[in-house]
Amino acid sequence: MHIPDGYLGPQTYGSMFAVMVSLWAKAYSSMKKKVKEETIPLIAIGASFSFVIMMFNIPIPGGTTGHAVGSVLLSVLFGPWTALILTSIVLIIQALIFGDGGITAIGANCFNMAFAMPFVGYFIYRLIRGKTPISSKRSLIGAGVGSYIGLNIAALLTALELGIQPIISKDSQGLPLYCPYPLKVTIPAMMIEHLLLFGIVEAVVTVLVLYYLVKTGTIKEESYHV
């Protein structure tokens, strides 16, 4: 799902970066007020976990990749604003050091995977979980469903951002300047793999990790929720 350099025009990556700047400011303010010192080690482990699973990229036709993300799990454990910051840090490090995702596309990649995915996933998780404890079956089901839908929302946004480039960015001869694939190519290319494979992997990983953390007593009813 990492969009590389050269596939988004300045209209798209510039606007996405501007949106993310305001979201990063809001998230930082939220973390600064609520984060507790004892939560920092687990937060760091959560960010490391997201970094590792995102490094297992499988190329997808259309100029991007498919992989698990872990941002919905982070939002379940720490809240969506903290998940936004953690996932953004991971994506920025991957782009700057490992070349995984373009530097110009940082804003778009963060919008898709660090904002849309954890917030949508968290909303669905809370809707299914209701007022039951985090150790309940409804909590695990909610985390799995939220992860699956959240990942696919991020994949859809990626497909839309890529697919509109031939429409909004053309040269004098009408040829696309950036991503050459239209929506009829990008949407199926992204969604088939994520609906049938990567979304399921994301859900399974999220449920298993959450179950392990609850069973081992690592997390206790929102004690790490910031």
Rank of each mutant, 00 (worst) to 15 (best):
H2M: 07
I3Q: 08
G6E: 07
L8Y: 14
P10A: 01
P10Y: 07
Q11R: 14
T12G: 07
Y13L: 06
G14R: 11
S15N: 09
S15E: 05
S22L: 15
S22C: 08
L23Q: 03
A25H: 04
A25G: 07
Y28Q: 07
S29D: 12
M31E: 06
K33H: 10
V35T: 10
V35E: 13
T39L: 10
L42H: 02
A44S: 12
G46I: 04
G46R: 00
G46N: 01
A47E: 08
A47L: 15
S48K: 07
S48Q: 07
S48G: 15
I53A: 02
I53R: 02
M54R: 08
M55V: 01
F56R: 06
I58L: 15
P59T: 02
P61D: 08
G62V: 04
G63S: 11
T65N: 15
V69T: 13
S71T: 05
S71G: 07
S75D: 06
V76Q: 01
F78M: 02
P80A: 05
P80H: 05
T87W: 02
I89N: 03
V90G: 04
V90Y: 09
A95R: 12
L96Y: 14
L96R: 12
I97N: 08
F98T: 05
G99C: 10
G101W: 09
G102Y: 11
T104K: 12
A105E: 11
A105G: 04
A108D: 05
N109M: 09
C110K: 04
F111V: 07
A116L: 14
P118M: 09
I124V: 11
I124F: 13
I124A: 00
I124H: 10
I124C: 01
Y125S: 00
Y125W: 15
R126E: 10
R126G: 00
G130E: 12
G130N: 08
P133L: 09
P133M: 04
I134W: 10
S135A: 13
S136F: 09
S136L: 11
K137L: 12
K137T: 04
K137E: 10
R138V: 01
I141S: 06
G142P: 12
A143D: 06
G144S: 02
G144L: 00
S147G: 14
Y148H: 04
G150P: 12
L151W: 09
A155R: 11
T158N: 12
T158H: 10
A159Y: 13
A159E: 13
L160P: 10
L162N: 07
I164C: 13
I167A: 15
I168L: 15
S169A: 14
K170N: 10
P180S: 12
P180H: 08
Y181A: 03
P182Y: 11
P182D: 06
L183I: 08
K184T: 08
V185M: 15
T186I: 09
I187Q: 11
P188C: 04
M191F: 03
M191K: 07
M191Q: 08
I192V: 12
I192L: 13
I192K: 08
I192C: 05
E193R: 07
L196Y: 06
L196P: 06
L197C: 10
V201M: 15
V201G: 07
A203F: 08
V207K: 01
L208D: 06
V209D: 01
L210E: 00
K215H: 09
K215E: 11
G217N: 10
E221T: 03
S223L: 06
V226H: 13
V226Y: 14
V226N: 03
V226G: 00
